[in-house]
Design a protein around this nucleic acid. Sequence first.
DNA 1: AAAAATATGTCAGTACTATTGACATATTTT
DNA 2: AAAATATGTCAATAGTACTGACATATTTTT
Lengths: 170, 170
Amino acid sequence: MKADAESPGDVVASPIGTADIPQIANIELLFFAYRAFTGDPDRILTRFGFGRAHHRALFFVSRRPGMTVAELITILGITKQSLSRVLRQLIQSGHIRQITGRSDRRQRHLYPTKAGHELILELSQPQSRRIADALHACGLADSEAVSCFMQAMIDADDRKLLDAIATATG
Amino acid sequence: MKADAESPGDVVASPIGTADIPQIANIELLFFAYRAFTGDPDRILTRFGFGRAHHRALFFVSRRPGMTVAELITILGITKQSLSRVLRQLIQSGHIRQITGRSDRRQRHLYPTKAGHELILELSQPQSRRIADALHACGLADSEAVSCFMQAMIDADDRKLLDAIATATG
DNA sequence: AAAAATATGTCAGTACTATTGACATATTTT
DNA sequence: AAAATATGTCAATAGTACTGACATATTTTT
């Protein structure tokens, strides 16, 4: 149990800094920024007995109503087994509804209900406000620099998925 | 089991957009950007049987060597029980070392070992490169706009924690 | 028409990260 | 000596993810 010592041995005592990792400060900032960003909705989700996975599913379904289960799985980057429970709960709670495909009756098209629509708005509002406030505080009202940066951070294949959403959404 | 329907009922068929949530596009971008950002180290961590929690712990210990367990808990925003297993594994694997406090012998000061130092560099390099590339692609070499934005996203109390790290790190 | 492929769903088992609550030990402060 | 603090551990629970196996309905291919 005594994995502990009185004297430094092998130890590295100097902090890693910009000399080691040029973007270390931004790495750190991104960690904290994302935590703040997800913290707002987390508090709301607790009221419904939901977690972040529910939020993400509802978000993308609301962003692209009528998407199939397979499309949602691709965007979320999880397995159907992982999505299964989350989706079942969102359907049972009346936030998402499945509609059998007209042309292909194997498919299930996903739509937010009115309740689901209201919930995603409630979850998104504090996030939107936080982003808008941050942009404003830095004099970046048009958000072009930040949007470009975030887009450039994303892998090519994920950017394709995003384009598909943007196309459907306008 | 038939939570599914042939006809739309209560359903909201129009996608949420900028009219509903002004920053909806940036919310979406941030989700994908962060996923890409964490994806790089995730692949490396698997080799060691570690997860993201190990990465975060090692990151902050390396960023501020000599920090106590209590300080690490505060920064990570988790309970000591959650940290316990992760820290024990990092100590057993020889990536972090504990040194009993000289003035207060109850405290355990945490340091990365040489192995820990090398691992955090390996984990941080792809993240740093990704950020640097994204900044460069958007002509934001000095990263001022992006850094300001991320800092402004963070809650006041977390920003204090960050300042403490920055002060120690220079 | 039969066979293969596809879309979805479910069950079982496992892993990682987190929680709360209770309790233990060593050390410092009062 | 008593109280507070820093750390650590055990047990139980929850949320999110995974793999593998199997089932059903439907569509496509042969």
